[in-house]
Design a protein around this nucleic acid. Structure first.
Lengths: 178, 178
DNA sequence: CACCAACTATTCACTCATTGAATAGTGTGC
DNA sequence: GCACACTATTCAATGAGTGAATAGTTGGTG
């Protein structure tokens, strides 16, 4: 994924060490999946191998040794390129709920797909309520807000899709087993 | 991902061999990323190891040998469980465009984020038009239609997010470098 | 003051996912 | 009879991610 780029972005503010990068990552990307420590060091290793970062010395401050890394010129260019690059919009549909419905229609029947759609819709609606309240708490930072915006928008999109698919599936009884 | 489950689903219709599964996958999940051959066999290997499928004999029909696999009882149970299981709705935000904007705000400036948002929005709108016309072609199957629905809905969600984020970002000039 | 818990920092072993190329058999057209 | 396309599988390599292990330091507690 883009873990490597995010780390480069965090290093743009000055040298940092692995443990610190993990915390900065989890804090600046609120609803993202927390980064495992192992992965930070693995990714840093690849970035160093590719010449995008270098060790910028060891130090210690009440604790074990720590190794800081900093951006190289090449790393900064790489980051800049990524920041300007437009992502291909939705090249593929990779969604668990989508493939589950398609598989249900193929491997089971429309009834089965319908049951799933109904249950998933309920779960989505409940989660929507959660996020909506979370967004409006006063302690929300700009990052929190745009993350919540993002999640809510896509939950809504899922919900609309679940609904229209439900009516489409209702329109088929047996004709779908083709 | 759910590649393994989709293969189980395809095998629910009867024994099949790897090469055939690849084609069936790409055909039944229209806008999904095509499955690489290597991955089909690797996944089949894991499914066999876990007792969800077994070899159901070799045969040949004008071509090289081929090994068919079929679902075991355990495999069918596993598939059923997956088909009924509700997916956790949006547990994490994992979006390239989201993290790119956040990183741009941290590592560069609001101007930079703005430029990207504008460019990405243009790309998204153009892709939307493509998908909208693709959906309305008469040759579209039910799978094609619900796939297009899914993709369009999420592009719309992205677009709305790009727009609101754009106005949010415009509301900050320098205060964001915190 | 000995000891344990909690925190900081990194490494290791392992599995899964994915890619791209390599290998090999079989029929088709020229 | 030979290049070519198609069918079918395997292999080597990398990336991504997880969970546990290791190790140093500080602070509190009996």
């Amino acid at each position: 994924m883009s873990t490597a780029h995010v780390l480069l972005g965090l290093l743009a503010g000055g040298p940092r060490h692995g443990y610190d990068l993990k915390r900065a990552h989890d804090e600046s990307l609120p609803r993202a999946k927390p980064l495992a420590f192992g992965q930070v060091y693995a990714t840093l290793g690849r970035l160093e191998r590719d010449g995008y970062v270098t060790e910028s010395g060891q130090d210690r401050d009440g604790g074990p040794d720590r190794t800081s890394y900093e951006l190289t010129d090449d790393g900064r260019r790489h980051l800049d390129t990524w920041l300007s690059a437009v992502e291909p919009p939705a090249p593929y549909v990779t969604s668990e709920i989508f493939s589950k419905v398609v598989v249900a229609l193929h491997a089971a029947d429309a009834e089965r797909a319908r049951d799933y759609l109904v249950a998933q819709r309920a779960a989505h609606m409940s989660r929507m309520r959660e996020l909506t309240t979370a967004k409006s708490t006063p302690a929300a930072s700009i990052g929190d807000v745009i993350a919540a915006d993002y999640a809510i928008g896509h939950l809504e999109a899922d919900l609309r899709w679940l609904q229209t698919t439900l009516t489409r599936v209702a329109g088929l009884s047996k004709e779908v087993t083709n």
